[in-house]
Design a protein around this nucleic acid. Structure first.
Lengths: 152, 152
DNA sequence: TATTGTTATACTCTATAACTATA
DNA sequence: TATAGTTATAGAGTATAACAATA
């Protein structure tokens, strides 16, 4: 188990490293490309949900979506039934930007044996879902359990 | 391939979400816990190498390691043969902090079928290494290829 | 009353550039 | 000359708190 945890740590670090590099290549901030990735995976999203899943306050999400609109990669759309809500949606340009980062990740996945790809894909989906759910659960319950936690 | 890329994006996003949550739980910044993760995976490291692998400038790494030392989770050690160099090393307290975040990741990996764990672990290691290498290569060569790249 | 989103303010982190010390 | 690290400065992004509009 120790080795598996270390390898998961490595992949998380590699993902963070990729995030910085692809953001620089595209000319956006890391939070902006996180938002584009999120919208690419989940489709359009409420601005509040986007903020929550990106670990941002609603205040930070306001300026985030401001930047996305300014750069023309996403847009705010009014919610059909609730006039408080805003939907955030990729623009054509936003979809184009995401398309181009596709090759970056695909070239890594192309190294996997073709007849294993589907299995690897399922593993990635499972780990992503479980890690996200588990993290959200600890967040919500205020769980800590880190006895060496440092003073904030 | 499209689904696999989307699932890899999901896992990267889940890792970033985990990073923020575990940082808040520990009471450190996200870059600080990235550094702890890095040191846990790679062992002690030169300050320059740490900066490079975390995507930071040498200036940012100075203040990063300042913070790590101030919080007592890592320390600077002189390089034995090169008086310019500094080695960054986890302290006992730093190792304790990493140990505690271990359970967080392990509980996700425990959901994997036991007789499949080794295979999953190998996949994670492969993807981490390939993604990191590929990203570093594009960084080094100034490669772009993102024709919709936005003005900086 | 609770929820969604915005604004004003202050703070943290990082990049840039100029610098010191050592190889 | 090149490399490792530090310092000073400025800029970007975020959290906090107070607020307006709508449910």
């Amino acid at each position: 188990m120790g080795t598996a945890v270390r390898n998961l740590r490595s992949l998380i670090l590699a993902g963070e490293y990729y995030r910085q590099a692809v953001s620089e290549a595209i000319g956006l901030g890391t939070t902006e490309t996180q938002a584009l990735s999120y919208l690419a995976v989940h489709g359009e999203s409420g601005q509040s949900l986007l903020a929550r899943d990106l670990g941002l306050t609603s205040s930070a999400s306001t300026s985030l979506v401001d930047r996305l609109e300014r750069q023309g990669v996403a847009e705010r759309v009014r919610h059909p039934h609730d006039r408080r809500r805003l939907i955030v949606r990729l623009t054509d340009r936003g979809r184009a930007v995401v398309e181009e980062s596709y090759a970056w990740l695909a070239s890594t996945l192309e190294q996997v044996e073709p007849d294993e790809l589907e299995h690897v894909s399922a593993i990635l989906a499972f780990l992503a879902d479980d890690l996200k759910t588990r993290t959200a659960g600890r967040q919500a319950s205020g769980w800590r359990g880190l006895t060496h936690a440092l003073p904030v």
